[in-house]
């Protein structure tokens, strides 16, 4: 998007001073080509999404009887698939939110704390350096490499016993896996969150922090009153990034929740099997399900979009 804006802006400034007739005709041809090119790319990228959207509103006969990107006509139009998808995915939406939101918030907060300690505090460099090295290494550990150790680890933790009071309240004990997912995602997201916050805090004025120290603020007070309020843009970046990662992650849910029949099954697990049966694929249902599953990430992008752009730019 920023690319578009820049290309556009560039041509405008070039065109304005050279408004004589001869130059204008040359620029017009260039512009026509440019816009055609942009339109072509727009179509190319939007066609799959458009196809998915129109397909989700089609009856089975509509899906088989028309081109994928053709809109549904009177007889083949139906909300039925969206209703069915929502019925199937509803509990998954709630389950996913149950771990994705806490894990995102906790990992962002802990990342911010850690990065603050690694940059603006006056701890000795020789203590900071190894911690940072470990965190950077943590960013590069592939998900696949930790799957077996992860399931081993959680099988050793008697989480079911510790949470006995919850099951006594009538909560399905499948929900232990929600706790497991929260802790796993926080641990796995902490390194990248810390590294992102660290680069942001490194650029923060050191004199400003020193001024706060001389003003009598302790290291905790400086974080709460100066650093945290100024971290908004980076929180937007980290929240969007982490939420998308955690919401869309299938690997950890496969290992920790395992089946869609679990009461705590997240939306990604249910979506994987949605609309698939021995009789074949129900494309309309799968499309509707995909859109429902993607809506929360879209909402997060829209909610933090402005701060996100500011945070990425710094």
């Amino acid at each position: 998007m920023s690319n578009d804006a820049r290309t556009d802006g560039g041509t405008v400034t070039e065109a304005d001073p050279g408004a004589s007739a001869g130059l204008l005709s040359g620029l017009d041809a260039y512009r026509v080509l440019l816009y055609l090119g942009l339109l072509g790319m727009l179509t190319f990228f939007l066609i799959p999404i458009e196809s998915g959207l129109v397909t989700s509103f089609k009856t089975p006969s509509g899906v088989s009887g028309s081109l994928p990107f053709a809109p549904p006509t009177g007889g083949t139009f139906t909300f039925e698939k969206w209703r069915a998808a929502f019925d199937a995915l509803g509990r998954g939406l709630i389950n996913s939110a149950l771990y994705a939101i806490p894990a995102t918030v906790i990992s962002a907060l802990l990342g911010s704390f850690t990065a603050y300690g690694l940059t603006q505090s006056n701890w000795k460099q020789k203590y900071k350096a190894p911690v940072l090295a470990l965190l950077v290494a943590g960013v590069f550990i592939p998900y696949q490499a930790v799957l077996v150790p992860l399931s081993q680890f959680w099988s050793m933790i008697p989480l079911q016993e510790w949470l006995g009071f919850l099951w006594a309240l009538g909560i399905n004990n499948d929900y232990a896996s929600v706790i497991e997912l929260i802790i796993t995602h926080v641990a796995y997201g902490l390194p990248i969150c810390t590294v992102l916050f660290r680069s942001y805090y490194k650029n923060m004025s050191e004199e400003m922090i020193e001024a706060a120290r001389l003003d009598g603020a302790s290291i905790r007070r400086i974080y709460r009153r100066i650093v945290l309020p100024l971290s908004g843009p980076m929180f937007a970046v980290v929240l969007i990034y982490q939420f998308t990662q955690i919401w869309n992650d299938l690997l950890f849910t496969l290992v920790l929740v395992q089946t869609e029949s679990s009461a705590a099954a997240p939306i990604v697990l249910i979506l994987a099997g949605l609309g698939t049966s021995l009789e074949g694929q129900d494309f309309a249902l799968r499309m509707a399900g995909a859109f429902i599953a993607a809506l929360p990430t879209l909402a997060v992008y829209i909610a933090f979009g402005e701060e996100f752009a500011e945070g990425v730019a710094t």
Binding site: S205, E207, M208, A211, A212, L214, D215, I226
Partner: peptide, 10 residues
């Protein structure tokens, strides 16, 4: 109290 070159305002 210290006054900094960059002013260091919040």
């Amino acid at each position: 109290a210290m006054v900094f070159q960059s002013y260091a305002l919040y």
